[in-house]
């Protein structure tokens, strides 16, 4: 499949110099849905917002790396250039639909504005397109909704309107930043079915919800503490996770664990300032080894459809089983 976007070694630092997101490398192909899964502090939002240059320089900036899209490196593009990409070639939808719309303007007007700005259509043609898109996203009475204000629509409807906005004009890539997190489950299902129906588009889907990712994504990228820890085909990751974090995440959720007792990931995320040349998951990993606090694991290929960043891979290569942790003896 053709590659639409190639992100190479992206590192985003906060204003105080600390790298919040490190060495992110992944590709997005045509017509695929890539899920980005991570909890708070994983850096998934920061990564994705950096792709579109949405982070103010006072908060964070791209330190190194490149974002190749259509022969351009987005990381080097000035704001003027970004504006041609945003909303036209790459669109984004957020968790809160209310923040996407101007509360004092009618929905239709806002969507048509985007179309008129990025295409050559005249007003009449544009309106037709907008109504078509509103219908596409499952809004049953597009004429009515076109002339309504944002506050007149419910959360689910407004979320759909936001998708319609992001699709006008149809982008090559749609970034969905936790679009269903704030919605009720039955409405969430509706929105996901709308997204599933979209054609000729690649979607970057960010979420913390494993269930949603498994329903919807072709490939998935698991992030932890600013790094990619595992990446690969959805089914492969679900059935044969290689990274301890992914494994434990699956085991701690009753939908994926057959056991009576949920497996717990002890401890919590280490603070940003503490990160050095070590695996950020080491303090919580039941299989941690000495090397895990001495070097940082790199993302390597486990198989055709899977990559993971873990020193256990080295053992696999050598076909050695990891030793069980010794009981700590008190010094005599």
């Amino acid at each position: 499949m053709k590659k639409l976007m190639e992100v190479k070694d992206l590192t985003v630092s906060l204003s105080n110099g600390l790298p919040a997101v490190k060495n992110i490398t992944f590709d997005l192909h045509e017509n695929e849905v890539l899920g980005i899964v991570g909890e708070s502090g994983s850096g998934k939002t920061l990564t994705v917002h950096s792709l579109l240059g949405l982070i103010p320089r006072s908060q964070a900036f791209i330190k190194t790396g490149s974002i190749l899209f259509e022969d351009k490196d987005l990381s080097l593009l000035p704001e003027k250039g970004m504006r041609h990409v945003r909303g036209k070639e790459i669109s984004i939808i957020f968790q809160d639909p209310f923040s996407a719309f101007n509360p004092t303007m009618r929905i239709g007007k806002q969507i048509i504005e985007s179309l008129l700005q990025h295409t050559n259509l005249n007003k009449k043609e544009a309106k037709k397109e907008v109504l078509k898109t509103l219908h596409l996203v499952g809004i049953n009475d597009p004429e009515l909704r076109y002339s309504q204000y944002p506050h007149e629509l419910s959360g689910g409807l407004l979320q759909r309107a936001m998708i319609a906005l992001a699709l006008s004009p149809p982008p090559k890539i749609l970034i969905a930043d936790e679009p269903t997190t704030a919605l009720d489950v039955t409405i969430q299902a509706q929105i996901l079915s709308v997204l599933k129906r979209l054609q000729n588009i690649s979607i970057l889907f960010i979420t913390h919800d494993l269930g949603v990712v498994s329903q919807f994504c072709d490939r998935v990228m698991v992030m932890y503490a600013g790094k990619i820890v595992e990446m690969g085909k959805m089914k492969t990751i679900l059935e044969k996770p290689k990274h301890p974090y992914t494994k434990m995440l699956l085991k701690s959720h009753p939908a994926y664990s057959k056991q009576k007792r949920l497996e717990v990931i002890p401890g919590s995320l280490p603070p940003l300032s503490l990160k050095r040349d070590a695996c950020a998951f080491a303090n919580r990993c039941p299989q941690a080894m000495n090397i895990c606090v001495k070097k940082e694991p790199q993302l390597i290929k486990n198989s055709r459809y899977q990559q993971s960043a873990c020193f256990l891979n080295d053992l696999r290569k050598k076909n050695v089983k990891s030793k069980k942790p010794k009981k700590t003896l008190s010094p005599l």
Binding site: P271, L274, N283, A288, C292, K323, P325, T328
Partner: peptide
């Protein structure tokens, strides 16, 4: 060889 030995986590936990 001992790079791949299990990690003694006690020291880590205190620092964090």
């Amino acid at each position: 060889n001992d790079l791949y030995d299990p990690l003694d986590k006690k020291q880590l936990l205190d620092v964090i």
